[in-house]
């Protein structure tokens, strides 16, 4: 997957190999810091990988974090700041959420409770980000696997849409 600053944003593909490497990094982080959950999310709020023990339900959290991450980046831009490692921390009574940038269009959401020390989480999150960098380092855009979307997929999807949402009315 590449996250280059191409004006016409490329579609992104996460390969099986990248996925396996990412999962290893995330579970190592979870083990070391005893966090509740960690997600790797792209700028559109889509989850690339997650290590989720007793953590929160994910799609909504990822969408919110992507918004919050993008909003803090825009704020930095308005203030003429160029944050190197933008990190956003939400502190709750029982749970904290850490949002940290990994690459240009990709970030980590770390959810942790009282049993983890913020300093530890911060240090190991930064370490995880360094480990993740080479996974996303290639400059070649990964090709989508063959047959991901083809004519038979589209036909089957259209039938399913009619079943699920009802046939066209009026």
């Amino acid at each position: 997957m590449t996250f280059e600053s191409h004006p016409k944003r490329l579609d992104s593909v996460l390969t099986r190999r990248q996925f396996d490497e990412v999962l290893q990094c995330l579970s190592a982080l979870a083990r070391k810091c005893r966090i509740s959950a960690v997600f790797l999310v792209n700028g559109s709020g889509q989850i690339l990988a997650e290590h989720n023990g007793k953590g929160p339900s994910s799609a909504g959290l990822a969408a919110l974090a992507a918004g919050s991450y993008a909003a803090s980046r825009e704020m930095a831009r308005l203030l003429n700041e160029t944050p190197q490692f933008p990190m956003v921390l939400y502190e709750g009574r029982n749970q904290n959420v850490f949002i940290a940038s990994v690459a240009a269009d990709c970030f980590l959401i770390v959810v942790f409770g009282r049993e983890s020390a913020l300093g530890m989480v911060r240090i190991f999150t930064r370490k995880t980000i360094e480990e993740l960098a080479p996974v996303f380092g290639q400059t070649e855009q990964e090709p989508a696997p063959d047959g991901m979307i083809d004519a038979s997929f589209r036909e089957a999807l259209n039938r399913r849409l009619d079943q699920t949402f009802g046939p066209d009315s009026e």
């Binding site: 992104s12 996460l14 690339l48 989508a144």
Partner: peptide, 12 residues
């Protein structure tokens, strides 16, 4: 579009 090849997911 994001394609998760390992999980066969297509996100739109």
């Amino acid at each position: 579009m994001f394609i998760h090849a390992a999980l066969n997911e297509i996100h739109l």
